[in-house]
Design a protein around this nucleic acid. Structure first.
Lengths: 238, 238
DNA sequence: TCAGTACCGTACCGTACGTTACGGCTGCGG
DNA sequence: CCGCAGCCGTAACGTACGGTACGGTACTGA
C-alpha cells in the first residue's frame, strides 16, 4: 500500500511516478500490458496473477488496488515511449520539412500501434465513470499534450528562422495534429480495421507536412491572401 | 427474442434496423440513453428497468440480451441525429464557404455533445473486446462515414463548379475532418474538460473552412506552387 | 538453528450484475 | 364470467471479479 499511495495521488495527481518499479514489477506491468492489448483476454487481478506468475497478494501489496495497477501500467508504458527528442540543428526549409515529416510519421506509427489503441480504449473507458480516475489525464498528458510539448519548440524555431508564420504556436500545433491524425485514431478506437503500412504512414506524413507548410509557411508566397492568420479563441486549457 | 434476432444480426450486420421500436420501447431507449450519458450512473439491466419503470422480463423480451439493448440504443440515437441534408442550391464561392462552415459547426456541435461523447465511449469500450459486437461499426457508420456521405456531394459540386480542385473526394473530406475536429474529440473522450462555447464552435468552423479552401480552393491562386495535389494511397477502406 | 521477510499458490468472502422465474395486475376477445 | 396475453415488480440463481486470508517455500542475517 506504500507504492500505491504515492502512485495513485500526489501533489498534482498526474505525472508523479513515485518509486520506480522493481524489475519484478516491471515484468508484471509488461504482462498487464500484454493482457490489455490481447483482444480475447481481459485484465483481471486473477488473470494477471496467473499470467505474471505472481500472487494476487503481491499485486495488492505493490499497487494497492486495481486502480493503482492500471495507473502504474499506463505510466510504465508512457515511460517506455518517451524519447526521440528533436535536435535543434540549424534548420533551413528542407530541414524543417524533414523534421515535421519525421515527427508526423513517428506519431502515426505510435498512434496506430495496438498498444496505443488498447491503452487509449482503457483510459476512455475509465473516463466514462465520471467519478474521476486519472487514467484519462495520464494518457492525455502522454498523448496530444506530449506531442505538443515536443513539437512546439520546433515550430518556434521555424518562426524565428522566418520559415513559419503564426500567432499562437498551440493553434498551429493543433492544426498539424488534425492534418496528421485526421480520422485515423477514432476509427481505430472504434474497431475499424486499418492496415496502415509503413509506406502509408510515410505518404500520409508527407501530405500532412506539405499541407501544414501551405497553411503556415512564410518563406514563400508572402503576399498570399490568406496564408496564416489563426487568431481565434483557444479551445480547452490543457 | 424476436426483435433482438433481427437487430443483432442481419445480411450485412450493420445498418439493418429490424422492426421499429414501439413508443413504449422508444421511451425505454431514451431512458437507456439518459443512463449512458449520466456520469454517475451505470447502465445495468436493473437500473434501466427501474429508471424506465418496466420489468426486466420486458427488456429481455424486447431486446434479447444486454447486447441487443445496447445495439438498439445506439441505433435509436443514430436515427434521431439524421437529418440536415445539404440542399444543392446553385453555389458560388461564398455559398460553398457558408455551406462548409455550417457543416463544420454542426459537426462540432454534435461531436462535443455529451450524448455523442458517451456513445462513442460505449462503442469504443465495446470494440475493446475483440470478439466483435457491432457497436463500433454502427457508431462509425453514423459518425465519420455519415459525415463523409453528406459532405462528399457538396465537394463534388464544388469541383464541378470549378471552385475546388482535388483528385479524391474521400481524401479531401478526411483533410476537412482533421481540420475541423483536430484533437477535440480524443480529448473529450479522455475526459478533458472543454467548454467549447457556441462562439468557439463558430470560430473554429470558420477557421477550418478557411484553411480547407486554402488547401483545396481552385478559384483563386491558380498558379500556387502547391495548392492541391492530394495524390496518395488511401488509408482504410471505410 | 531460528526469526524475519518476501513471495507464490490457492481457497475464501462479499458484491455486482446478467439472466431467469414467479406472482399479481390490467385489458380484451369470446 | 373466463381465459389469456402483455406487462410490472421482485425474488432468486449463477457467475465473474475485486479484495483478503492463510499455508507453504526460499532466502537472509544473527
Amino acid at each position: 500500500m506504500d507504492l500505491a499511495a504515492t502512485i495513485s495521488e500526489g501533489t498534482n495527481g498526474v505525472s508523479d511516478a513515485g518509486d520506480d518499479p522493481t524489475p519484478r514489477q516491471k515484468a508484471v506491468l509488461d504482462a498487464a500490458l500484454a493482457l490489455i492489448v490481447d483482444p480475447k483476454a481481459a485484465l483481471t487481478m486473477s488473470s494477471l496473477a496467473r499470467a505474471a506468475s505472481c500472487s494476487k497478494e503481491s499485486l495488492y501489496k505493490w499497487f494497492g488496488d486495481r486502480d493503482g495497477l492500471l495507473t502504474a501500467t499506463v505510466q510504465w508504458q508512457a515511460a517506455k515511449v518517451r524519447g526521440m527528442p528533436v535536435r535543434r540543428e540549424e534548420l533551413g526549409r528542407d530541414r524543417l520539412e524533414a523534421s515535421l515529416e519525421r515527427f508526423a510519421a513517428d506519431w502515426l506509427t505510435v498512434l496506430s500501434g495496438e498498444t496505443s489503441v488498447a491503452l487509449n480504449r482503457l483510459a476512455i473507458g475509465d473516463a466514462a465513470g465520471g467519478g474521476g480516475r486519472n487514467l484519462g489525464r495520464i494518457v492525455l498528458q502522454n498523448g496530444p499534450v506530449a506531442m505538443g510539448r515536443r513539437l512546439t519548440p520546433l515550430l518556434e524555431l521555424g518562426r524565428e528562422a522566418g520559415l513559419l508564420a503564426f500567432d499562437d504556436a498551440g493553434e498551429a500545433f493543433r492544426d498539424f495534429f488534425g492534418l496528421v491524425v485526421r480520422d485515423v485514431q477514432i476509427r481505430l478506437l472504434l474497431g475499424d480495421r486499418i492496415d496502415l503500412s509503413p509506406s502509408d504512414i510515410r505518404v500520409g506524413a508527407a501530405r500532412a507536412t506539405r499541407q501544414f507548410l501551405v497553411l503556415y509557411g512564410a518563406g514563400q508566397r508572402p503576399d498570399g491572401p490568406q496564408s496564416a492568420n489563426p487568431d481565434f479563441a483557444s479551445i480547452g486549457k490543457e
